[in-house]
Design a protein around this nucleic acid. Structure first.
Lengths: 307, 307
DNA sequence: CTGAAAGCGCTAACAT
DNA sequence: ATGTTAGCGCTTTCAG
């Protein structure tokens, strides 16, 4: 027996049934909100359950029914605002449809980490898998027996059981870039996210699209790693190029670092160089100078995916 | 039958056993790394399992063994850097000891949300519960049948099955405050976090301790809600008081908002007012002016708790 | 070192 | 509207 001697064995549904003087199956019906149970009986069962402190055994339920009512999400183990917000949105959305969430994190740089994370989720018996901020680590979606939802990947990523939902951050990126062009800049530079991330590529695509639509020259892209530190380095670098008058950064952290890099090099923001970020972190309006940024609708994205 | 007709039924351990010509129990032994299995047999079993694409059924294992090897964590559904970092640390720590994580989020302001979250975790059959960034919502730890670890609560919070691990952020807060005093300030003001949070109270305690130890006057505390916006308001307010020369903010977001509030009121930072934050968010060194801050050892805290 | 039998606590089909 | 009978796929005894 695994049960400790000091804690009295937990009550099971038969115990409740006995106390309520009904069959065990009726208890099951009550706890599953199935129809065809008289109010009278339902009340009795609930009272008995309450008295005993009964709690439905999830493992047994899953085993017998074949469905776990849980879905797994693969996410990056970082405190970055974007991925975190998306995860929170997913959690809400999943719970709203009556499922629970299993989280598996991958570490950046660990190629094949996604596959491993998916494996571990499958071992836990999830009914479906969401791959949150996917990165392109070679391996396409594995052939697995449950539905997979890939957030932010191009539709080309879809497969038999695989659905891909785009965040359309390319559109937002395009708008952000156009905003800068509307200010009268000849062109806009871009500090991109790591190009292994689909979301980074999306933003770059949106930026490029905007420039082409206006026939603007397309400057060389500086690639960062989402961190303020990398944005700072990009800023120092861009400051040496006096054609730079406007910069679109792929996230707010890099934008903030970028601004500092530019300022340290003697440039004024926004007088000499305009900067636009991406994500709309809560801090954005409070740094000096305040950061203009595009807001991503994380909650909407998360909700959309759950068909 | 719950199995879809289009997906061939998943293999079970008996199938593996048949193919490997051993008993089903032996398959179980191999997959649990139990001793007393000859290398020869182990290899045969693994080969058969691999060929069939066998995967141990977690629900059945949990049901039969009575242990889920999963622990639940109650956390706040925000993208705040502190709680998020702590959660990531917890995830790593939990996985390192061979457990999986179940997450339940609570919404701030929803009194009793913690109890509800704990309920849902228990329904999912976790072996233990971690309450991460606890807030004081009246209800003490409920009497539940599994071990509970409360991170960042005072030892007084402990109970029969309840362990409390302090983050000792009070010590860090004290050091931060002393740092400001060492700079020659007559006293230090404090922009606190919401006092329902234990971690906010800890920081306030540390600040107060430092002032008392030096015999400094103890100014009125301004309470924020962790956000940059609330820090900004605090800044505007403190700017009207010309005794303010140094401020310790309970987190970096508030510190950044605070700085902006002070600057907008015509004060220079750090020339007129020194500001120290708390958390050491990655951005801290890249805002203008750079933020001095105390770093919390999230990973260590998380690891410590797992006895 | 390996195997046989007996459940774990529930849901699914079929009664009634 | 409620009860009966079988399992779900594994781990646990207890035998060899």
């Amino acid at each position: 027996m695994a049960r400790n001697a000091d804690s009295p064995a937990l009550p099971r549904s038969v115990d409740v049934a006995r106390l309520a003087e009904v069959s065990q199956k009726t208890v099951s019906r009550v706890f599953n909100n199935e129809p065809y149970v008289s109010e009278e009986v339902r009340r009795r069962v609930l009272a008995a359950a309450d008295q005993l402190g009964y709690r439905l055994n999830n493992a047994a339920r899953v085993l017998a029914s074949g469905r776990s009512r849980s879905i797994g999400v693969v996410t990056l183990g970082t405190a970055l605002y974007g991925p975190t917000s998306l995860l929170i949105g997913i959690e809400r959305a999943v719970r709203d449809v009556g499922y629970t969430l299993r989280v598996a994190t991958t570490v950046e740089g660990d190629t094949g980490g996604v596959a491993g994370a998916v494996e571990s989720l499958l071992d836990q018996g999830v009914d479906g898998v969401i791959i949150s901020e996917p990165i392109d680590d070679g391996a396409g979606p594995v052939q697995i027996g449950v539905p997979v939802l890939v957030l932010g990947a191009p539709p080309a990523f879809a497969g038999p059981h695989v659905v891909a939902t785009g965040v359309r951050s390319d559109l937002l990126a395009r708008v952000a870039t156009e905003h800068l062009l509307d200010l009268g800049h000849r062109t806009v530079h871009h500090v991109a996210g790591p190009q292994r991330w689909f979301s980074a590529r999306d933003r770059l695509d949106g930026w490029r699209t905007a420039l082409r639509a206006r026939g603007c020259p397309e400057p060389t892209v500086v690639e960062g790693d989402w961190s303020a530190a990398s944005g700072y380095l990009a800023g120092r670098q861009l400051a040496t190029d006096d054609t730079v008058t406007a910069v679109f950064a792929a996230n707010d952290d890099m934008a903030i670092g970028l601004i500092r890099g530019l300022m340290e090099a003697g440039l004024r923001v926004p007088e000499d160089v305009s900067v636009v970020g991406f994500d709309d972190i809560p801090l954005a309006g409070y740094v000096t100078p305040p950061l203009t940024t595009a807001r991503q609708p994380f909650d909407v994205v998360a909700r959309e995916g759950l068909t």
